[in-house]
Design a binder for these strands. Structure first.
Lengths: 176, 176
DNA sequence: ACCGGCATGTAACGGGTTACATGATTTT
DNA sequence: AAAATCATGTAACCCGTTACATGCCGGT
């Protein structure tokens, strides 16, 4: 599943610019299970336009840059249907922080502390973003995914708060 | 954090071959928070050997191929300490399955059912693998990460079992 | 005065994944 | 008889990330 399909998927939530699509993957409905960068969004959108899978209109704005708003076409919709027939790739999670926690004896106390704090903040803020999303405008089927994200990050925050001591104490040779 | 550091990290659990390292990322202690493929493990191990960060000995086996068992050296250890001083990259989770669930109106009923089943099995088997790991030989600090993995996958399985109906029912136009 | 947010885009670089190559043994 | 497990390796390809380029507005 490449960035093009992801963009089409994002546009099923309504017309959007590249910048807005990015936000959907940062704070919005996709935040907890996928990410894309500008470097892949903008070229994708351009190619989708060429292929007639989306249309673009320019929206002038006062006080801020103009934006290019993209709309899903029938062709784009069909493309999505086709993509959804495939077998999805396995989930992949890569957490360098967890690797660090696992190798906690290789970190000095201070840095471990920092990393732990930052990670907790990261999970907390993602959790808050997910809780803050407006559920009224969302189709019931989509709530499954949102609910899962919420439960997941709540669990993560709770576990880390309750078990941080496992990581911090038992430091005997923390002076490497 | 590249594959070389990951290999060094894996070797802190004890001497291992490339094949065994792969297993650590599939069923073992790293299973739930990172993955690496053979295509990156073998070249990494070769380079680490060149750099003197690991040593290699050949172990002949009867009835199966010989293996190359790698051992962490002092130099490798230092390299790990250095790597752990860096700021870790943000977690990244990419789940095509969740994208599909989100776009559930684009899947036909049967395929949705299949994907759901496969995902549940995937989470269940990962969960079981994590529960099955032997905790006696593991340093207390490392139990933090393992415990987190266990809680996470238990939560995931439970949520999916209890909320699958959100995804399956409300199918009115499932004939696209 | 400077930083963060809004807004779009390009290009190189790096890295990992995928596929290929090989082969014996055990399990189904 | 076929598939899975054990075991190692190479190389091309793809794709995404990172960094760069540009610019205005509002808040601190």
């Amino acid at each position: 599943m490449d960035a093009k399909i992801l963009c089409l998927g994002a546009l099923t939530c309504g017309d959007a610019s590249g910048y807005e699509i990015k936000k959907m993957f940062e704070d919005g409905p996709f935040a907890h299970f996928h990410q894309v960068s500008f470097g892949s969004i903008y070229p994708s959108l351009a190619k989708l336009c060429e292929q007639g899978k989306v249309t673009m209109r320019k929206e002038m704005q006062e006080g801020r840059p103009d934006k290019k708003v993209y709309t899903l076409t029938d062709k784009g919709n069909k493309s999505l249907y086709r993509a959804m027939k495939k077998t999805p790739a396995e989930d992949q999670l890569r957490s360098e922080v967890m690797v660090m926690f696992f190798l906690q004896e290789y970190l000095d106390q201070d840095h471990l502390h920092d990393v732990l704090d930052q990670q907790l903040n990261f999970y907390r803020s993602l959790s808050e973003k997910l809780e803050a999303l407006d559920d009224d405008t969302v189709a019931p089927g989509r709530m499954f995914v949102r609910g899962l994200g919420r439960v997941l990050y709540r669990t993560l925050v709770k576990y880390m708060e309750e078990n941080a001591h496992l990581l911090l104490n038992n430091k005997k040779r923390s002076n490497q």
